[in-house]
Nucleic acid binder design. Structure first.
Lengths: 109, 109
DNA sequence: CCAATAATTCAACAATTATGGAAATATCGA
DNA sequence: TCGATATTTCCATAATTGTTGAATTATTGG
């Protein structure tokens, strides 16, 4: 992952509504959520939701599919995984930035 | 960590020069780097560097100390660790977002 | 105390981002 | 086909962010 891509992904998550949307989509799993349901859950206008979902999509963090009249969004776990790996490699160098406590213990051994 | 804090941290890293600065500081370790050295390494004006370093400081990702005429910045690994943990818990739920491949294998067992 | 060095703060401006209403597009059921 | 539903695109506007030069603050050595 290039720094440019990382910046785009970080920027996509660096906004109240987008972070909340992404969290909802992670919880929703592969089933995903419709744009309208997301807008309502976030308490924002449909056009605003569309704007934010486009940003997340552009960053590769989510995907969409049409299902009848709805457009269903779903989290792209792979992209998030890549971002986490990038941050771990480039921003935690030589530091105990292991996420899993159990792993940290194992790594220390 | 609250979503607000996470958004602030993500936003602090979501900018070309700030992400680069943070990476440099992670590499520099506890010794840190002077503001001027960072500005030169990033190729930006001292006032711009000051602006970005203030953002990173406000987000808690870096710390500063005065050393004679210089102000030395250093990465705050704990804050980064907290951010990684937040993302792992809230944005990777049920997905294989483990950062360490060795850990992932261990976790699967 | 004064000149030099290092950094920040301030001010002005450019650029980007966020917002919601209105119009346009796509799909469905009758 | 038509009306209803779901969403996006467009537009105007507000708010935030990023940039730099100039002025200000802090520190040191002589």
């Amino acid at each position: 992952m290039t720094p440019e891509v990382a910046v785009t992904a970080l920027g996509a998550l660096a906004q109240e509504h987008r972070l909340a949307a992404f969290r909802l989509l992670v919880q929703a799993g592969a089933q995903g959520m419709a744009a309208g349901a997301l807008a309502e859950a976030l308490g924002i206008a449909p056009s605003s939701a569309s704007f934010h979902l486009a940003q997340l999509t552009h960053a590769g963090l989510i995907q969409s599919r049409r299902e009848s009249r709805s457009i269903i969004y779903a989290a792209n776990y792979g992209a998030m995984n890549d971002l986490m790996a990038y941050l771990s490699e480039n921003c935690c160098q030589g530091a105990p930035c292991t996420v899993d406590a159990g792993c940290a213990a194992e790594n220390a051994a």
